[in-house]
Design a protein around this nucleic acid. Structure first.
Lengths: 209, 209
DNA sequence: TTGACAGCCTACCGATCGTTCGGTAGGCTG
DNA sequence: CAGCCTACCGAACGATCGGTAGGCTGTCAA
């Protein structure tokens, strides 16, 4: 369904466009830029993607699909929900390290999406948020988690991570190197603690009020 | 120093540009758009702001100044640091309600700033982050707060808020109205709890291990 | 052998971009 | 009245935008 074997150039275009859209956004990236990054003619880009919007859509769709797939594989790995949440944090941090552009694009899309009312836009990351919320809901239903608002918790967790990541390049200039390094190291532990504090029940489930 | 009495049009331009930059970003907003929003000629905009970059800079500077000033007034209001953190959350939520555009611009600037290396960019919000971190540091030094990484805590707090706010328009479409309303209501309480759980020491400082 | 098609190209289009320029209207100052 | 100022305007600049038209080349099935 998804994996019709596209040409090599097609694949390169998607990857290169991902970088460019991440760096300068939809409006700030021109088809010319994308073409130049692969040293091909502009109209060759338009051969593969009839409109700029279409290229952007494919980039988004691919990111959302990858992320959702990874999350589904965690959710069906047989472990308990608490472990799954920790796996998710590990996955998220790993993805940030390997594909930093993707975090930027997601944030940009969050900002731009509401304003593209002209052409009815779809929200590519809904399945991803759904999967993630479901882990929390499931953990609550089993009594493994404290009662929280699942959607809200997910947003706060994602927010804490994404925001920090996006601030990194700027923060680097504001703090001394040692302080900066320490912040990066502490970051993941802090996310894990957020899951622990907010979700995990005390070790011995005493039926206290 | 700051308040040279600018013309009425100048002030209107800054306000209107704030809205437009928030909605479509720096690249997505044209000088024509700004001019049209006030029904004046494009060249009139350029009379007040010789370059587009300059207009953008004034918008940013004004936001940063306002926010820093408000924060300073909290920091010098004589209350303890815990109360100050709660005042800050109240202020932040109030500002989001009154000037939602500003949250969007800050996020956009975080995304765009690292990529504007061409013209040496300054970071307008450094004083703001500094003020906020200082409240946390001060609380820690007095033994009022648990030991945390002040910068990191501040980022996680701001991240949880801003991210949620920016997701709101999109989230509205994903959840039922009742669930959505509940999330908005819970949001501020959740931020306050974040301060309480992460910073506040237990009421009776028993020297437990 | 032929023809369809994918892939890529050059050349070009109208629209819009940020910016410059010359000029006008009106308000102060001397 | 001259001289100078701010505020504003329309016209036009060169550059770049997204997108179109049409031609060349190679592959591969009929």
């Amino acid at each position: 369904m998804e994996n019709r074997n596209h040409s090599e150039t097609y694949e390169k275009l998607v990857l290169s466009a991902e970088k460019l859209f991440a760096a300068k956004g939809f409006y700030g990236t021109s088809i010319r830029d994308v073409a130049q990054s692969l040293s091909i003619a502009k109209s060759s880009v338009l051969h593969h993607f009839p409109r700029k919007e279409k290229l952007y859509a494919v980039v988004l769709q691919r990111i959302a699909d990858d992320m959702t797939r990874e999350l589904q594989s965690i959710r069906s790995d047989g472990t308990d929900e608490f472990t799954q949440m920790l796996s998710f944090i590990a996955l998220m941090c790993e993805n940030t390290k390997n594909r930093p552009d993707r975090d930027l694009i997601i944030l940009r899309e969050l900002l731009d999406n509401p304003n593209r009312a002209d052409k009815a836009r779809k929200w590519y990351f809904a399945p991803y948020l759904n999967e993630l919320s479901r882990i929390v809901s499931s953990g609550m239903e089993k009594g493994l988690f404290k009662p929280v608002n699942p959607g809200l918790f997910v947003f706060h967790l994602l927010g804490a991570h994404h925001y920090f990541i996006i601030c990194l390049p700027t923060v680097r200039k504001l703090f001394e190197a040692a302080v900066f390094d320490r912040m990066v190291l502490d970051h993941r532990r802090e996310l894990e603690k957020m899951v622990e504090d907010k979700l995990a029940r005390p070790r011995k489930p005493k039926p206290q009020k």
